[in-house]
Amino acid sequence: MLLVDPAPMHRSGLRMVLAAAGGASRAGTIGSAGGGPGGAAGHADDAAGGAAAPEIVVVGETGDGAEAVELARRLLPDVLITEIALPRLDGHAVARAVSQGGLPVRVLILTDHDSDEEVLAAITAGAGGFLRKDAPAHEVTAAVRAVAVGGAVITPMVLARILARVAEALPAPETTTTSKLDALTDREREVLVHLARGHSNAEIAGALLVSETTIKTHVGHVLTKLRLRDRTQAVVLAYETGLVKPGS
């Protein structure tokens, strides 16, 4: 875990929250240098099966955006948690540098700046999660674990605003093109619908009466075929194409 915030007190408080959540676990490590998302995903599967959740370890911290990118390249933490307002490079630029650099590092934005523009900019830049700083400690640690294994997390109230905005921008149903979805099988479309409704892999597996491993495979195929980076982009595309409509 790499912490990036210009306020030392904020970094200290976040470090304490993460230490309290992860210190008692021994199943694995989120945040260890060179750990990589693949290893974290394996530990998450163990946790789902009843073993302890991966330990959360802070491997570095900084209050500077440019230094954050350098530390990300050198330490390769599973997750980089960053504020938006930073010296030299802001949080969006940090997320963009990590994403475009092909680093096996996921970015979680933790900020008080939650305007629609900030959220959309974060998603576009490649962030895998967006939370307000006033989120409860358990939501922060849950978001860290979810982002570490490739999930996407957005504060519920913020997500509701964003989806409403996406809905307003959608074309009329009769003019909506679904050609982007032609590459998907019927089952993959079903999975995409569930993703757009915010369902977890476990919930989708239960609804479709298949294993969670099968769902993970389908999700991977959906992202690959549609050339999407993560689940957040999949949700947006599902609404843009009219596959899922607001309130459905």
Rank of each mutant, 00 (worst) to 15 (best):
G38Q: 13
A48Y: 13
E67D: 13
D45G: 15
L75C: 07
A47Q: 10
G49P: 10
A66T: 05
G34S: 07
I81T: 03
V58N: 03
E83F: 07
I56R: 06
V59T: 11
G50D: 08
V59W: 06
G34E: 05
D46H: 15
A52K: 14
E70W: 02
G35S: 09
G50L: 04
G34H: 03
E70D: 15
D78S: 08
E70P: 05
G34N: 06
G60D: 02
P37K: 12
A41P: 08
L75M: 10
G65M: 01
G36A: 05
H43W: 15
I81Y: 02
L76H: 10
I56F: 07
D64W: 00
A48D: 15
A52H: 13
A51I: 08
D78E: 12
A53N: 11
G39V: 11
A44D: 15
L71M: 07
E83P: 02
A52F: 11
L75H: 09
R74D: 14
G39A: 11
D46F: 15
V69C: 00
A52S: 15
T82Y: 01
V59H: 07
A41D: 05
L76R: 12
I56A: 05
A72H: 01
V79R: 00
T82N: 01
V59Y: 04
A40P: 08
E61S: 05
D78C: 06
G38W: 13
I56M: 08
A66K: 00
E83I: 08
I56W: 06
A33L: 12
P37S: 11
A41M: 09
D64M: 02
G65V: 01
G38Y: 14
D78T: 10
A51E: 15
G35D: 09
L75P: 06
A40F: 09
E61D: 04
A66W: 00
L75W: 07
T82C: 04
E83W: 05
L80V: 09
G63H: 04
A51C: 11
A72Q: 04
L76W: 08
P37H: 10
A68K: 01
A48M: 13
A72C: 08
G39C: 10
T62H: 00
E55S: 14
A41I: 12
A53K: 13
G36E: 04
G34W: 03
T82E: 05
D64L: 02
G39E: 13
E55Y: 10
G60R: 00
V57T: 11
P54A: 05
G60M: 02
P77V: 04
A66M: 03
I81V: 12
A40H: 10
G42N: 08
A47L: 07
T82V: 05
L75N: 07
A33T: 14
A40T: 12
G38C: 11
G39F: 12
A51Y: 13
A41F: 12
R74Q: 14
L80A: 06
I56H: 05
G34P: 07
G36T: 08
P77E: 04
L71C: 03
